[in-house]
Design a protein around this nucleic acid. Structure first.
Length: 925
RNA sequence: GCGGCAUUGGCGGAAUUGGUAGACGCGCCAGACUUAGGAUCUGGUUCCGAGAGGAGUGAAAGUUCGAGUCUUUUAUGCCGCACCA
């Protein structure tokens, strides 16, 4: 009887959460319509790769934040699109399948199912009817479709827009008599140089271990980001996307979107705009000059040699016969060096070609060298070297004993180069006496006027390599005829991924699709490569707007309604990959009129990473050690144990608030079965016979990456089983500011759980009584705070606000509907299940997720003490408004004359008035 | 080397426009209830000091009546870019 009564009051989170998740699903509460009178708002999470390990506690951080914002926007009366899907094509999914010896389709679907069940338990308000999977033919039809559009388009530099390639053909037909004389193949070859998706022989990052080429953002320090395998440079015929054509617009668009400065800066670096000049240098004894790029046109008078990249097309032209052997040896050496070796070993290397260039200003003869410090892919692959004012040229000049001519007054170039762009020019003909900045400008004008060169903007951004010699990706809708590629007609899309006998990658780069039978179109062979992982993720946000549409990627009506992603949440690791490709892809579709916004993501927030928090036990290894005695962390600095203990990672799931569950520890692994302990108070389990309970063993801890080998992975399912989804959601937000990295630390989760339990108790017996002024103040303070927090993405500070309100109201023994009902609404974004139950306990039939957000009435917040000045440190403070430029003594007079002054001071004697015009007045009494 | 961000008690972190630093939670201390406590409740908890009082937001300087907040210098940590001419 007693026990039953007690149980009925208990906060049974698992029952409540199951009940409401079921009710929401059955009633289609989160189903979103494209037809609504309400204002629209689109909140998007970066969709996950469904990896084999499942979700850990770090993954949902961003999802929880976006869910809070979505629910808030709904309560504010918006029609909110908040979808979820799976980035299920590409390397990670395939690597997992290979490692576990299964077909990628099987593992991918299993992983997705697991992800969905984990996500559903957390109580997100996703509209699952709109789920997309990039490996679904219904979805990748539109990835292939976009590729076909890119193949059939070119970038018009005049309008800075993509145009149908038919326009280019029409122009050539009209104005270029040569065009008609070209063969079909020659015409195709010429067009290929303009297409936005094009096939070209390029230097690529080839990763033998993964058996595929990789894009620049998939390679870091010469190793593949995925797996960390070595990457080498190779020339291969590959599909590429002409992303570089959009460099200017990608850069300029950053100014119009609400992203963090650091992320924009990362993209600006990656795009790498640099303003400079291209200049022609004649080669002695040859007709054709070659072109270099420089940002320091002012330093032409100090050029003492030229350098070509080893892969430069100029190289063969300038090798003299006597130098040929030496040069070829050097070129061969460069070819064999991996990217990683080149980066690791930065010793100066190079070779003289035997030829000389003519300095266009001094007419002096300068030697032409080849060195791998000049990159073929940037600028023209050739530079003019000014050792006095460029550190790389300086190192080269010192090594080969070449002259160094200082060009700036006072620059000491005996030990190192002077790279700064400041000072007065010397030794520079007509530039002498000018400031560097003016000299750059003057030289640009000079070379433009004399025809030596022209002003040029260069970008570091390269075209994206779009082929992968892998199985698990979108097939290209491309067949080959006479060695040239043609795209499939649109009504043949999707071209489905075929079954193959062996899908594993090959070390020699033959794509697995070569194993497919009948892989041809009308007797012509189909492309064997597949698309990279970023293909499917580049436009998925558009598909959510209109996921069932068979006629278009996104229907015009749906796109006009939702327009773009209003809020995008995800990790900053996608800054130079997905977030560049998506912006490029969207701009391309915008140019062709398929979407109505030029930028895909209006506002973007990066959630911080959740690191692991590892726990340690300390095995005694000193004198007489048996190997199964463990010393409590607080004792390891004691003389008897210092330097005689060995830290061992212990599973964080058997540690609670750094206290080890010693029975669970003994059961964890056979080697710990007979473990004995020295507890926090110095008593030993051997001596006292304790096995559990009263004595505590304290574990040490450290912040490390969350990984299996450190036994610090925490599964959200376990947290939910123990505390419930609402506690998990609240606690993840409570950990700290959204955008900061922080360790997952379970210490303190009890505090949040306790709060929910106490709150729960307040909804036991609701009454319809008039609230007091104090109760109203608590409520309205909370409304104001929570509203501000959510609008400013400061979710971590909301939880304390709820706790304070709960404390205040339970001290007042408040159980009034007028107070508790709006609190349930305020809580709904954060802890939707308990809020729903509370809402129903207040007597509501509808769902709290459809309720209306309460408005704060400031009148309840005004206190008598706030109407009058706050007194502190002998000063009286209040705000006195007057124009900012009022002189100080004038303000003093105004203050003294003001009726409030006499009222506030209430007869006290004024000793001093401190005035800050337009702001605050302190009056010292 | 270049760029961005951070630094506040034993810990995570508050302080929203320059206005009483340390909210809230954890941990710890004390008490209540209890056979028991890794349950619950109440109170305390920045540091030094018995106290009055003093010091205090990585360090140093500056602006200001007033600085965690603004400026400069500097130290440390994290992240991004890097032979990009």
């Amino acid at each position: 009887m007693h026990a039953n009564l007690f149980l009925s009051m208990e906060y049974n989170f698992s029952e409540i959460e199951k009940k409401w998740q079921k009710a929401w699903e059955e009633n289609g509460v989160y189903t979103v319509s494209n037809e609504s009178d309400k204002p629209h708002y689109y909140v998007l999470d970066m969709f996950p790769y469904p990896s084999g390990a499942g979700l850990h506690v770090g993954h949902p951080l961003g999802y929880i934040a976006s869910d809070i914002y979505s629910r808030y926007k709904r309560l504010k009366g918006f029609n909110v699109l908040h979808p979820m899907g799976f980035d299920s094509y590409g390397l990670p999914a395939e690597q997992y399948a290979i490692q576990t010896g299964q077909h990628p389709e099987k593992t991918t679907f299993e992983n997705i199912d697991r992800y969905i069940s984990q996500l559903k338990k957390i109580g997100f308000c996703y509209d699952w009817n709109r789920e997309v999977r990039t490996c679904d033919p219904k979805f990748y039809k539109w990835t292939q479709w976009a590729f076909v559009q890119m193949f059939n388009s070119y970038f018009d530099p005049k309008t800075q827009k993509a145009q149908p390639i038919s326009k280019l053909i029409a122009e050539w037909e009209a104005n270029d008599p040569k065009w008609a004389t070209l063969s079909e193949k020659e015409q195709q070859e010429r067009l290929m140089k303009y297409r936005i998706a094009y096939l070209a022989d390029t230097k690529v990052n080839w990763c033998p271990k993964l058996g595929t080429v990789l894009a620049n953002d998939e390679v870091s320090e010469g190793l593949s980001v995925r797996g960390g395998y070595p990457v080498e440079q190779r020339v291969m015929r590959q599909w590429c996307l002409r992303v570089s054509a959009y460099a200017g617009r990608l850069l300029e668009g950053l100014d119009r979107i609400d992203w963090t400065e650091s992320l924009k800066e990362t993209q600006r670096n990656w795009i790498g705009r640099s303003e400079g000049a291209e200049m022609q240098f004649a080669v002695k004894g040859q007709d054709a000059p070659f072109t270099i790029f420089t940002t320091r046109a002012d330093t032409v008078f100090g050029v003492t040699f030229m350098v070509l990249a080893p892969e430069s097309e100029y190289v063969q032209r300038v090798i003299t016969d006597e130098q040929r052997e030496e040069v070829e040896a050097y070129l061969q050496r460069c070819k064999n060096r991996t990217e990683r070796e080149r980066i690791a070993d930065r010793r100066v290397t190079g070779v003289f070609t035997g030829s000389y260039a003519i300095n266009p200003l001094t007419q002096g003869e300068i030697p032409i060298y080849i060195s791998d410090y000049v990159l073929a892919g940037y600028g023209t692959g050739a530079i003019m070297a000014v050792p006095a004012h460029d550190s790389r040229d300086y190192a080269f000049a010192k090594h080969f004993n070449l002259p160094i001519i200082p060009l700036i007054e006072g620059a000491d170039v005996s030990e190192e180069s002077f790279d700064a762009k400041e000072g007065k020019m010397i030794n520079s003909g007509f530039l002498n006496g000018m400031e560097v900045k003016d000299a750059i400008q003057a030289m640009k004008e000079y070379i433009t006027n004399t025809g030596i060169g022209r002003v040029k903007v260069n970008y570091r951004l390269r075209d994206a390599i779009f082929s992968r010699q892998r199985y698990w990706g979108e097939p290209f809708p491309v067949y080959y005829k006479d060695g040239m590629p043609y795209t499939l007609p649109e009504d043949k899309l999707p071209l489905e991924l075929p079954e193959v006998k062996d899908f594993k990658p090959t070390a020699d780069g033959r794509p697995p699709l070569g194993n497919a039978e009948n892989w041809e179109y009308e007797g012509n062979p189909l492309e064997l490569c597949t698309m990279p992982g970023f293909a499917g993720s580049s436009a998925y946000y558009l598909r959510y707007m209109d996921p069932q549409n068979d006629e278009a990627l996104v229907g015009k009506q749906a796109n006009d309604y939702w327009r773009q992603v209003d809020l995008y949440l995800g990790g900053s690791e996608h800054a130079t990959g997905h977030l560049i490709y998506s912006r490029f892809w969207n701009k391309f579709l915008y140019d062709l009129g398929y979407v109505c916004e030029d930028e895909p993501f209006k506002k973007l927030i990066n959630q911080g990473m959740i690191q692991g928090r590892s726990n340690f036990v300390y095995r005694y290894i000193g004198e007489g050690a048996t190997g199964n005695l463990y010393i409590s962390y607080n004792l390891i600095e004691n003389p008897e144990y210092k330097d005689k203990v060995q830290p061992i990672h212990v599973n964080v799931n058997i540690v609670n608030n750094d206290v080890l569950d010693i029975n669970a520890f003994r059961a964890w692994m056979p080697e710990f079965r007979n473990a004995e302990f020295v507890f926090a108070d110095g008593t030993s389990s051997e001596l006292t016979g304790y096995t559990a309970g009263a004595k505590q063993y304290i574990c040490g801890w450290a912040v490390e990456k969350m990984s299996k080998s450190m036994f610090n992975v925490v599964n959200p399912d376990d947290v939910i089983a123990k505390f419930g989804a609402d506690t998990l959601r609240l606690y993840e937000m409570f950990l700290g500011p959204l955008e900061m990295s922080k360790p997952w630390d379970t210490n303190g989760i009890d505090g949040v759980h306790r709060f929910l339990r106490r709150l729960w108790n307040m909804y036991e017996n609701i009454v319809d009584e008039e609230p007091t002024k104090e109760e109203l103040k608590s409520l309205h303070k909370l409304i104001k705070k929570i509203t501000w927090d959510i609008e400013n993405f400061s979710f971590n500070t909301s939880i304390p606000a709820f706790m304070i309100a709960q404390n205040e109201l339970s001290a007042l023994k408040c159980n009034k509907r007028a107070i508790l009902e709006p609190i349930a609404v305020l809580l709904a974004p954060y802890a939707p299940h308990i809020a729903e139950e509370a809402w129903h306990r207040c007597g509501n039939e509808s769902f709290v997720v459809n309720a209306e957000w309460p408005e704060c009435n400031e009148a309840y917040l005004v206190e008598d003490s706030q109407k009058y000045p706050v007194q502190f440190n002998g000063k009286v403070r209040f705000t006195f408004e007057c124009p900012k430029d009022t002189p100080k003594d004038e303000v003093e007079k105004l203050v003294l004359a003001h009726e409030d002054t006499t009222k506030y001071l209430n007869g006290a004697e004024i000793k001093k008035i401190i005035v800050v015009p337009g702001r605050i007045v302190n009056i010292v009494m």
